[in-house]
């Protein structure tokens, strides 16, 4: 009797170990695509890696979280649209993620224009140097290592890290923390309560605003640069090269504006700094 019991336990454990844990179907989609064409992808959760390559096509590979997940591809080689969704609403648990874990890799021509949307998927992008990269996420984290002309990021609570020589960065977050480095020319960053850290070079235009988050910016400024800093109750710290000359126009209700440089009204660089009760500090690097 005891031997029979042990045998059944052994067989059951073999069956369980041979069964993949909620693994869904695999994905392998390839389509021809223009080198600078546009592609968009939306998904709920899981992990998405996007990589630029030299081929004139896109390739989507990986594994879907469950067999309820479906991939839809529409469009043509100028403009592709990929949607990954799971049918029904049975899979959402209290932690806010669907059962199973979708893991996908999307390879696109490196100069492609890319737009990504996710609810909670973590997104990792590398090797792109096209005209545009846009990401909208609710709570997913973003990691970008790209050299794109124009990056647009929008997040509710997802954190983001951006690296690479990117010309123009526009980002907006409610409570996510953002770190960006290598930005040139233009940066427009706004947060409600998230903390923002920006390292940039020769900015021509910089706008940073926060309600209660903290913002730290290390940058040099181009000739005729326009800088606008605004905080309600958060802290903004702008660190500039020691030889920078600028015309400062600052205003505060009950906060402080500390400027190590002094203001030079003959400079063609202008900085506007406004705070309600937060502090703005302009320091020498």
């Amino acid at each position: 009797m005891r031997n029979q019991y042990l045998l059944s336990v052994f067989i059951a454990s073999l069956v369980i170990s041979a069964t993949p844990a909620m693994a869904g179907p695999s994905v392998d989609e390839t389509r021809a695509m223009q080198a600078d064409g546009h592609i968009s992808l939306s998904m709920v959760d899981g992990d998405l890696d996007v990589r630029g390559w030299d081929n004139d096509s896109f390739e989507l590979t990986g594994e879907l979280g469950t067999d309820k997940h479906k991939v839809t591809v529409t469009g043509d080689e100028d403009d592709w649209d990929i949607e990954i969704r799971h049918e029904g609403s049975w899979g959402w648990n209290w932690k806010g993620s669907s059962s199973g874990n979708t893991r996908l890799t999307l390879k696109v021509p490196h100069a492609a224009r890319v737009d990504l949307e996710s609810v909670s998927a973590d997104i990792d992008v590398a090797g792109l140097d096209g005209a545009h990269l846009g990401i909208e996420t609710v709570s997913g984290d973003m990691d970008l290592d790209v050299a794109v002309a124009h990056i647009e990021l929008e997040s509710v609570s997802g954190d983001a890290e951006v690296r690479g020589n990117n010309s123009r960065l526009e980002l907006e977050t409610v409570s996510g923390d953002i770190r960006a480095s290598g930005i040139q020319q233009h940066a427009d960053i706004e947060s409600v309560s998230g903390d923002l850290r920006l390292q940039a070079v020769d900015l021509e235009n910089l706008q940073a605003g926060t309600v209660s988050g903290d913002v730290i910016i290390d940058t040099s400024l181009a000739n005729r640069a326009r800088v606008r800093l605004e905080t309600h109750s958060g802290e903004i710290e702008l660190n500039l090269p020691a030889d920078t000359r600028f015309d400062l126009d600052s205003d505060t209700f009950s906060g402080d504006v500390d400027n190590e440089f002094g203001s030079d009204s003959n400079s063609d660089i202008s900085i506007d700094a406004e705070t309600f009760s937060g502090n703005i500090t302009i320091s020498k690097k």
Binding site: S42, V44, E87, S89, S98, V119, S139, V174, S175, S193
Partner: peptide, 27 residues
């Protein structure tokens, strides 16, 4: 700008609602 499907955002409501409400109240 947020053209996500109903299922995506509907199921994710427990995630984004508290965050967005906190942001609205803060502002």
């Amino acid at each position: 700008r947020y053209g996500m499907s109903a299922v995506l955002l509907g199921e994710a409501a427990p995630v984004w609602r508290p965050q967005l409400i906190a942001g609205l109240q803060e502002n």
